[in-house]
């Protein structure tokens, strides 16, 4: 048996390799795998990345309680708090990830191997999304039960569509940022930092975004979560529809456009990144 196994390598017969979509798909799952298995293996994240954020969200709920806000606002915070999981995942595990991969020497192999870079990033996104979805689910379930949030969903398919479109556009944005952040070197940290709290503010994670005024709210709609959360809030709490920024149907159309924009942008940014990396001889190799 042992000799037979070695013969696989010693044989001169060529190994069949995947191409095209089959290769793309294989790469997506190969890159998602470490994300998922790593999370399962390092169980402490489950505690740290769910319990503490949950406490933070509850903190915001009590702010509304302390000023006697209507019950729907508690629901707004729960939804926004849950969505922070995806936003942080995009910022810290998507946008900054190529930077870490560079540090570990993986990026060089990514560029060297025939795997499409988009597939690697999508794999990263899917793997990361599972972790974030867990965190978001814990926040929604615990807070909804503990604070008696009542959801009156009119159209479940529309709600699911808004969520999925938001995720697609959001992770497309993350993929685009991955290249942009890498190109900016260590500044990536600063960009990610810049986009954390300020986006919590302008995208209306904890209050209806309309409160910022139509101009700011519309400008903030470039971040898919702004429209996504606004749409989902309108669908989950029809009684507060007046706080919505624009009709949900329009938000769906805009989210589709954002998705196309960011995924297309990611594709071009990656190509550009590879070009710059190969021309300048840095970007992809580890330096410190």
């Amino acid at each position: 048996m042992a000799a037979l196994e070695k013969d696989i390598i010693r044989s001169q017969e060529r190994v069949k390799k995947l191409h095209g979509f089959a290769l793309f798909w294989a790469v997506v799952w190969a890159r998602a795998y470490p994300r998922i298995i790593g999370a399962l293996r390092q169980k402490s994240w489950l505690f740290f990345e769910t319990v503490f954020p949950l406490m933070g969200v509850i903190g915001y709920i009590y702010v509304y309680r302390s000023v006697n806000a209507p019950q729907e606002y508690i629901g707004f915070v729960v939804l926004g708090g849950a969505m922070t999981a995806f936003w942080l995942n995009v910022l810290w595990s998507m946008a900054s990830q190529l930077y870490w991969d560079k540090e570990d020497g993986n990026l060089e192999i990514y560029v060297l191997c025939p795997a499409p870079m988009m597939a690697i990033l999508i794999g990263m996104a899917i793997g990361g999304m599972l972790m974030s979805a867990t965190r978001a689910a814990v926040i929604i379930i615990v807070c909804s039960l503990a604070f008696g949030v009542v959801y009156n969903v009119g159209s479940i398919p529309l709600l699911i569509a808004v969520f999925l479109l938001t995720m697609t556009a959001l992770y497309g944005m993350g993929m685009m940022f991955a290249s942009v952040f890498l190109a900016s070197g260590r500044e990536a940290w600063h960009l990610a930092n810049l986009m954390q709290e300020p986006i919590y503010l302008v995208s209306g994670f904890y209050f209806p975004v309309k409160a910022l005024g139509a101009l700011v709210a519309t400008a903030a709609s470039i971040v898919p979560l702004t429209l996504g959360m606004d749409g989902m809030r309108q669908l989950l709490f029809p009684s507060e529809q007046a706080t919505g920024l624009m009709p949900v149907e329009l938000e769906v159309v805009l989210l589709i456009l954002l998705g196309v924009l960011f995924i297309g942008g990611a594709y071009f940014a990656l190509r550009k990144l590879e070009q710059i990396g190969r021309r300048e001889g840095r970007l992809i190799e580890r330096r410190r």
Binding site: L18, H19, W29, P114, I120
Partner: peptide, 12 residues
């Protein structure tokens, strides 16, 4: 696992 991941990147 690590080797499997890289092998898949090469289309095996």
């Amino acid at each position: 696992e690590s080797l499997w991941m890289f092998a898949r990147f090469y289309g095996l």
